[in-house]
């Protein structure tokens, strides 16, 4: 079973999923879902579409260089079956996956470092610039023009209408 990657978004395409387009020069384009297929037909560049892996890699959103990326690859030479090797590989997959997730988490944490301080700084600036828009509650109580006027609505008429509808 070969798990292919989507041409557009680089997600894994399992057998029986997605759609495949073979161009008249025998190049194969695989798509994980109709969303990716449609984007391809619109001639969009995956490097410019923000939700694709290609974009995220290119703009430093995801981890790019790591030794855990060296394990999963397309092997065009078939391997001779060896029971021990198969067992060890299955064990290693779990371990490597764990390491990769941990490293990705660390990468994300490092990337988000200083984000909260930056947000707070921006909020402080916004508050400073827009403080004249905020009115104290005591001012609202004094000046009636700042609050919406209270309007009395007849409830009786509405009730009658409802009765008519029921009938």
């Amino acid at each position: 079973m070969r798990l292919e990657k989507c041409w557009f978004c680089s997600s894994t395409v399992y057998p029986g999923h997605g759609i495949q387009f073979v161009r008249n020069d025998a190049k194969i384009f695989r798509f994980c879902r109709s969303k990716c297929h449609k984007n391809f037909k619109m001639k969009r560049n995956p490097r410019k579409v923000k939700w694709t892996k290609a974009y995220r890699r290119l703009h430093g959103k995801d981890m790019t260089q790591d030794s855990t990326f060296e394990f999963e690859r397309k092997r065009n030479r078939p391997e001779r079956y060896d029971r021990n090797l198969a067992e060890n590989t299955l064990k290693a997959i779990k371990k490597i996956d764990k390491i990769r997730v941990a490293r990705e988490e660390r990468h994300h944490k490092l990337r988000m470092k200083g984000k909260k301080a930056k947000e707070q700084k921006e909020a402080a600036i916004e508050l400073e610039q827009g403080i004249h828009l905020v009115k104290a509650p005591s001012v609202l109580a004094q000046d009636q023009s700042l609050t919406l006027p209270k309007i009395k609505v007849k409830v009786q008429a509405q009730a009658e209408e409802n009765q008519a509808m029921e009938e």
Binding site: K5, S10, T12, T52, R77
Partner: peptide
């Protein structure tokens, strides 16, 4: 500009290594 996107780029972005053709 830069080279158009290919299936190999998609594979690399998905966290795969370069294809292994054996010795």
């Amino acid at each position: 500009g830069p080279k158009p996107h290919t299936q190999l780029d998609a594979d690399l972005a998905a966290g795969m290594g370069m294809p292994d053709n054996g010795p």
